[in-house]
């Protein structure tokens, strides 16, 4: 008789535990509609049920709060992207009223810089990760769009070799790196091949050690004029230096008749 009572109690306990487990699984799926039942015995299983219910309530509140914050961050990225697009449009419009090829080129350079930043915010807006971008994807998109916007001859080729696959870079690294790439490649496309029939621009990015990366961009164009070095009085080179400092990187610059190469080592 006593044994039958224990068997029945064990069976009831198992049923109650299964119901509590079901509630836990629902909470894990962010379904907070279910609650564990608390009986009148106020025994240990009732205590477990109460605890699960209370934790579920706290989790539900945190989830709502987190979702609201995510929505706000996404919205912020969307607005920044839109504002940068407005700046782009204004620059573009202004360029139509500017006389002289030199001045128009300066506007185009500014446009490219703004677009490289807008692209990051666009990617952040559509990605699940609100604070980091897939840098490979970003670089590929950026470089291809630079080639398109400079409307080059078909015999200028682009070679991209990005070894990193899924690495995400935070916005504080991605933006300066994007601007560096924009600066170097734009410069190559505008100046390196004016005396050449064909050419090649290469971009390589590899992870050399833990969080250390090597970014190499080169072209086989005609190189900078003699005696030009990184500290020379060229706005583009100075900008590159400043941006490399921003990401606490080190840059090497080689230029000659066979082309120009930039090698930048930086750490996340």
């Amino acid at each position: 008789m006593v044994e039958k009572v224990f068997v029945r109690m064990e069976k009831e306990a198992k049923i109650r535990l299964k119901k509590v487990l079901k509630v836990i699984m629902d909470y894990a799926a962010y379904n907070f509609g279910n609650r564990a039942a608390i009986g009148k015995d106020h025994d240990i299983l009732d205590a477990l049920a109460a605890g699960i219910n209370m934790l579920g309530e706290e989790l539900r509140d945190s989830t709502i709060s987190l979702k609201e914050k995510e929505a706000l961050v996404k919205e912020a990225h969307h607005r920044v992207k839109n504002n940068l697009q407005i700046v782009s449009s204004l620059l573009s419009l202004q360029a139509n009223f500017v006389k002289g090829r030199d001045a128009r080129e300066k506007f185009q350079e500014s446009l490219d810089r703004v677009r490289s930043m807008a692209l990051i915010h666009e990617m952040l807006y559509i990605s699940k990760n609100l604070a980091e971008v897939n840098f490979r994807e970003y670089l590929e998109t950026l470089v291809k769009s630079l080639f398109t916007s400079h409307q080059l001859r078909e015999n200028i080729q682009l070679k991209i070799d990005i070894e990193i696959q899924q690495e995400n870079f935070d916005i504080d690294t991605a933006i300066p790196c994007g601007l560096i790439v924009n600066e170097i490649i734009s410069n190559s496309l505008k100046h390196a091949f004016s005396n050449k029939q064909q050419g090649l621009v290469s971009l390589e990015l590899k992870n050399i050690h833990e969080k250390k990366y090597l970014l190499s961009i080169s072209d086989n164009g005609s190189g900078f004029p003699k005696n030009v070095h990184l500290d020379s009085d060229f706005f583009g080179l100075q900008l590159i230096q400043t941006l490399v400092e921003q990401i606490h990187g080190i840059i090497q610059f080689e230029t000659g008749k066979k082309g120009t190469k930039y090698s930048i080592v930086f750490k996340l």
Partner: peptide
């Protein structure tokens, strides 16, 4: 004094 009330009390203090 009960299992449930002890649990609720501790949980309340902790949270």
């Amino acid at each position: 004094k009960t299992t449930l009330s002890t649990f609720i009390g501790n949980f309340y203090l902790g949270l």
